[in-house]
């Protein structure tokens, strides 16, 4: 469809990128530009959806359709878009406060549905755009710069939560391992179902704990020779989930990067819908013809036929 092959640079808008110098988000958009170029993503059929936060600006920096939504609400906006036009390639950039604080209910609900889209969480342990308060990913006892006292709330475990919520692709990457991140994004896009990537993203302004140095010393990549996250048979689901959850508790000295859990077997929400509505994928809601010459497509006889249960003739 696209006559000329787009380069990574073509996926960048000329909107001024106003993230702090050195922000971990740079690595995230850089990986997205490259992944989109390598996947030859059609800019009109690719939708980047974000919430509110520093992370929320991502939608304006990527030269595909972008929908910058409300704080915490990127997921339901995204599902409305995807379910009414399942041909779209939908990528979500959410903040950790966005996704696991104010929007947590939506996070769990998406997992239960397994809608085919990709959720990238900018894991910077703080509410950056409101100046550094504790995000739900910040561990108890930690005190990044903006906090007066150490955090007294426990953190959520995003990987374990994603696995138990039903996400069928759950991975972690790091914003300054750009190749790893790019490949993970591509894998997540290829995966059919809800994919979640926890992206470690240093916030250079408000998080003086989880710096580049901090992560550089700790991260390591899960390798195929001793780690197999893929569900091959329905019977394996529980065991693979347990394995992923156990792995997700490795957070202090060594932080694993890679795919924790991958289950290609659970049907997507789109498949579940098309099972009861066979024409759904062929003619989804956004492609339905609903009028003929400015009139409804339902004529009087059809109305009586459809709604016979409500009609009585005297």
């Amino acid at each position: 469809m696209e006559p000329k092959q787009l380069t990574a640079a073509d996926y960048r808008t000329d909107v001024w990128n106003d993230w702090c110098p050195g922000c971990g988000n740079f690595g995230i958009v850089a990986a997205m530009y490259q992944a989109l170029a390598e996947m030859k993503a059609d800019p009109a059929e690719t939708v980047v959806i974000s919430g509110i936060g520093c992370s929320g600006k991502t939608a304006h920096f990527v030269n595909t359709t972008g929908v910058h939504t409300l704080h915490g609400r990127s997921l339901p906006f995204a599902q409305g878009i995807k379910l009414s036009n399942p041909a779209l390639n939908v990528l979500i950039n959410a903040g950790d406060g966005d996704l696991l604080g104010i929007g947590l209910g939506h996070f769990v609900a998406l997992g239960r549905r397994n809608v085919d889209l990709v959720v990238m969480m900018h894991d910077n342990t703080v509410y950056a755009l409101t100046k550094g308060q504790a995000a739900p990913t910040l561990h108890r006892g930690e005190k990044p710069k903006a906090l007066n006292e150490p955090n007294i709330q426990d953190s959520v475990n995003p990987i374990a939560l994603a696995v138990t919520s039903g996400y069928t692709f759950v991975a972690r990457s790091y914003s300054s391992r750009i190749n790893h991140l790019k490949e993970t994004i591509k894998q997540a896009v290829r995966h059919k179902g809800s994919a979640f990537i926890d992206i470690l993203q240093p916030c250079v302004t408000f998080d003086d704990i989880h710096t580049y140095d901090y992560y550089n010393k700790r991260v390591y990549e899960l390798k195929a020779d001793d780690w197999n996250p893929i569900v091959k048979d329905e019977n394996e689901i529980q065991q693979k989930m347990m394995q992923a959850i156990a792995k997700s508790f490795e957070v202090d000295d060594r932080i694993p990067l890679g795919v924790f859990y991958e289950n290609p077997l659970t049907p997507t929400f789109e498949e579940r819908l098309s099972e009861k509505l066979p024409s759904y994928l062929g003619t989804p809601p956004s492609r339905e013809k609903i009028e003929k010459n400015g009139k409804t497509i339902v004529d009087g006889d059809k109305f009586v036929e459809i709604f016979s249960q409500f009609i009585v003739e005297y």
Binding site: A8, N17, F26, G27, A30, Q34, I178, N179
Partner: peptide
């Protein structure tokens, strides 16, 4: 560019994502 994916130009106050740039 192969590892981090970006450099920053302080004069332009902008991240740069490509080598040629």
């Amino acid at each position: 560019f192969g590892s981090l994916g970006w450099v920053y130009c302080i004069d332009c106050k902008a991240p740069i994502f490509e080598m040629e740039e």
